[in-house]
Write a protein that binds this DNA or RNA. Structure first.
Lengths: 205, 205
DNA sequence: ACGCCGTTGCACAGTGCTGTGCAAGTCGAT
DNA sequence: ATCGACTTGCACAGCACTGTGCAACGGCGT
C-alpha cells in the first residue's frame, strides 16, 4: 500500500512532471524542438520520454491541455463579479500575466502546423468571453476603437506578446511589466492614459 | 545582341521572378514550406528552383533582402520632412501597410530559427529610426506610455500583425484596415482617440 | 536476496527533406 | 535546321527525425 503513496510517484511520476516542465521551456524557445532536444534538456534519454508519452503529439497535447486550463482559470478569475469593463480587462491582463509562459506556448504553437490548429478551437471559449467583455466596453463607450471587438481582441493578444518580448530583451523588469501591459492594453482600447494608469495602480497595491 | 534584351530575360528571368513571388506567398502560409511545395506552387519542378538559387537559404535570403529594402523605403517615405511625430507615425503605418505581405514575411521568419535571426540585425536600422521617432513623441508629450520607446516599438509592430490577422479572418476589409491600424497604433501611443481619428482621416483623403 | 519498475543504450525501419548529377526534352533565336 | 539556354524527370546520397523492440542495468521496497 505504501507503493501508491509517495514512493511510486516520487521516482517516475516526478520525472514525468519534469519532462513536461522542460518541454514547456524548450518548445517556448523553439516550437519545432525535437524529442531528443527535450529529452536531453530534461536530463533523460529519448527513449524514456516515449515511456511516458506515446508520441510527440501526445506530449504537446498534454502541455496544451494544461496551458488552456491555466489560462482559462486565470482569465476567469480576473473578471468575477466586476461591473466596469475597464477594470475587468485590467484584472484579466494582470491575472494572465502570472502564467505568461503557458500563454506564450499556446500562441507560439497555434500559429503553426495545421494539425495543431485545434488549439484555436480549444481556446475559443476563453477568447469569446474576452470578445464579449470588449464589446460591452465599446457599447458603454468605456472603450473607443475603430476596430470591431474581435479584431481588438487580436490586438490585445499581440500586445501582451510584445510586452513579453520587451521583458525578454531587458527593456522592462518583470515587476513593472504586468502593470505596463495592463495600462497599454487599456490605452489601446481607447481609455485615456491618465485614467488607465490610475485604475491599474489602484488594483495593484 | 538581341539575346540580351528581352529574349533571354523573358524566358528564365521572369521565371525566377515568379518563383520569388510564389515563395513569398508560400512562406507566408507556412514559414517551414519545403522547396518542393514552393516549386509546385510556382508550377515548376524542384530541380528548376535549384537552378536559380543554390540553396533554400539563398532563396530566402534573397526574399528577405527584397523585403527589408521595401520596408525600409516605405518606412522612410512616410516620415520625410514631417515635424509632428504623430503625423509621422501615421504616415509610416499607412506606407508600411502597402507592403504588408513583405513585412509579414519578415516577422514570421524572424521569430523562428536561430540561424535566421540575422533578419533582426538587418532590420535594426529601420527599427532604430522608428524608436527615435517614438522617443521624440514621448519627449514632446505628444505620446504617453508607461513603456520605454523600444518596447513601444515592439507593441506597434505586433499591433500591425494583429490587424493583418483580423483582415485575414474577414473581420475587416483591406480598405479600412490601413486607417484602423494607424488609428490603433496612435491610440496605443497615448494619443486621444478623437485626435488620432481626425489626424488619420486628414491624411487619407 | 529478490522482484518490480523505471531507465538506459542500442539498433532498426520508415519518412521526408536537401542538394547534386545526368540524360533527355523544349522553345526561342539565328 | 541548328545552336544554346532553360527546363524536366529521375536517381541518388546524406541527414535528421519519429516510433518501436529488446536486452541490460539501476534503485527501492518487501
Amino acid at each position: 500500500m505504501t507503493s501508491m503513496t509517495t514512493g511510486s510517484t516520487s521516482r517516475a511520476d516526478a520525472n514525468r512532471r519534469r519532462i513536461l516542465d522542460v518541454a514547456l521551456a524548450e518548445l517556448l524557445r523553439d516550437p519545432d524542438a525535437s524529442m531528443d532536444q527535450i529529452a536531453r534538456a530534461a536530463g533523460v534519454v529519448r527513449r524514456t520520454v516515449y515511456g511516458h508519452f506515446p508520441s510527440r503529439e501526445a506530449l504537446i497535447s498534454t502541455l496544451v491541455d494544461e496551458a488552456v486550463q491555466a489560462l482559462s482559470a486565470a482569465h476567469a478569475a480576473g473578471r468575477e463579479g466586476v461591473g466596469d469593463p475597464a477594470e475587468a480587462v485590467a484584472r484579466s491582463v494582470l491575472a494572465v500575466w502570472e502564467i505568461a509562459d503557458r500563454y506564450r506556448l499556446l500562441v507560439a504553437l497555434a500559429q503553426r502546423t495545421v494539425t495543431m490548429q485545434g488549439i484555436r478551437e480549444r481556446l475559443t471559449p476563453v477568447r469569446d468571453e474576452s470578445i464579449g467583455l470588449l464589446q460591452r466596453g465599446l457599447d458603454e463607450n468605456v472603450f473607443v476603437s475603430p476596430l470591431p471587438a474581435p479584431a481588438l481582441a487580436y490586438v490585445h493578444e499581440q500586445t501582451l506578446f510584445a510586452v513579453m518580448e520587451a521583458v525578454n530583451d531587458g527593456l522592462l523588469t518583470a515587476q513593472e511589466a504586468g502593470r505596463c501591459a495592463a495600462v497599454t492594453v487599456l490605452t489601446t482600447a481607447g481609455v485615456p492614459a491618465s485614467r488607465a494608469t490610475e485604475l491599474v495602480a489602484k488594483l495593484n497595491d
